[in-house]
């Protein structure tokens, strides 16, 4: 269980980390639910991140030192905001570049427009 979207799991597997790092590099801090909603909106409902993928990845990134958390009490519950550490900021740029480069390579392989039926 990774994503629920119009794209197959095989295609999307591996880009969750760059997605999280990209969003956090553009926003000072975000919480889990906010990340899923932002991805849903930005991808025009084409990528819906499953919680089963998001939270283990967020925690793994935190453990690896890319993210740091900040707990805030909101409506009688604890909300954890994630933000990039200096190491995370350093890692975000090359990871995003790699995805963009990969996109260009895919264009070379498959062309820029979907093949007509």
């Amino acid at each position: 269980m990774y994503y629920c979207s119009m794209y197959s799991r095989e295609i999307l597997k591996g880009i969750l980390k760059p997605i999280i790092l990209k969003l956090l590099s553009e926003n000072r801090r975000m919480y889990g639910y906010e990340i899923t909603q932002r991805v849903k909106t930005l991808s025009q409902d084409k990528i819906l991140i499953k919680e089963g993928s998001l939270y283990p990845t967020l925690h793994a990134l935190t453990k690896e030192g890319y993210l740091v958390t900040e707990s805030v009490m909101v409506d009688n519950r604890t909300r954890k905001y994630y933000s990039l550490t200096p190491r995370g900021k350093e890692a975000a740029h090359p990871m995003i570049e790699e995805v963009l480069e990969f996109r260009e390579t895919l264009k070379l392989l498959f062309g820029t427009k979907p093949a007509s039926a």
């Binding site: 889990g32 939270y55 519950r77 604890t78």
Partner: peptide, 16 residues
Amino acid sequence: QNQSLKSDLLDHLSCK
């Protein structure tokens, strides 16, 4: 067991 993950999921479920 993981309290940190538990609070994440509680907040997520509440939002949902």
